[in-house]
Design a protein around this nucleic acid. Sequence first.
DNA 1: CCAATATCAGTAATCATTCCTATTATTAGT
DNA 2: ACTAATAATAGGAATGATTACTGATATTGG
Lengths: 146, 146
Amino acid sequence: MSAQSPLHMTEQRRVILEELRKVRSHPTADKIYTRVRRRMPRISLGTVYRTLDLLAAQGMIRKIESAGTRRRFDGTVEPHYHIRCLECGRIADLPPGEMPGLEAHFRNQTDYDVVGHTLELLGTCPACRKDRTEGKDVGVRPASEQ
Amino acid sequence: MSAQSPLHMTEQRRVILEELRKVRSHPTADKIYTRVRRRMPRISLGTVYRTLDLLAAQGMIRKIESAGTRRRFDGTVEPHYHIRCLECGRIADLPPGEMPGLEAHFRNQTDYDVVGHTLELLGTCPACRKDRTEGKDVGVRPASEQ
DNA sequence: CCAATATCAGTAATCATTCCTATTATTAGT
DNA sequence: ACTAATAATAGGAATGATTACTGATATTGG
């Protein structure tokens, strides 16, 4: 599911990779599109999206905010973390309470004022683990769930 | 920025809140819409979205995956966390390395197999802190940045 | 050199979410 | 209660990000 067959380095892919590696920021696809177009005015936005996904699948770059883009809501207000199943997208609650010492651990590693954090555990839910031991080829059904 | 004036509890708001609190899952807006429609067939999806935002602003429910929805990319593959400025959306890297003991801390708190995690620190970046001490009313410009 | 395959540009389609508007409900003041 | 002012709603249109499609162009293997 990660490093694939060695990727054919076309001009477009090389330039996209170069432009992303050139910046210290964490640009969105259309920001990258804007930059790349300065060097390749005819490139299409679709190529940028396709290439970024490809490079990320190769492990050559990283997507951040890897969680699904659909917003979810939680009727429980008491602070607690979640764990998400990477196979079926199901989200479960963890017991209430914060990871002790977490924010303190980072306070002297950044020039930001730290005021909070988001933490999500990733894993395999009992149902998907069971499917797997039974040899069901579940593939990767995207986060539809529930 | 959190608890506001006491909310007028209309029928729609009450039913949306009830339906969300009734489930242990973490539904998307349209899942809630489907459920609520069983009791109020004429409710509109817009009302569901508006109400969920409202309830979250009151602190009566929680939005999860609170990060901005636009996908961002990172040219650095070495594992590292990010910190996001809540005011301007800017994302900065933290030094490479994982929070020690984090996944181990949760292994016995869930029936999922834990295989990873995402952690994002939240805070105020130096530029926004400076704006604030200078009394500039920056409001909350959404994650446009860079 | 040619056929099979991959990649691309350009554009249309999709999906979640937000915005808009006319209508309906609620509140406050008399 | 009656009415004007205000708030909330339904329904649908608009937006913005992302993905899918299509015909053209490039690349590779034989």
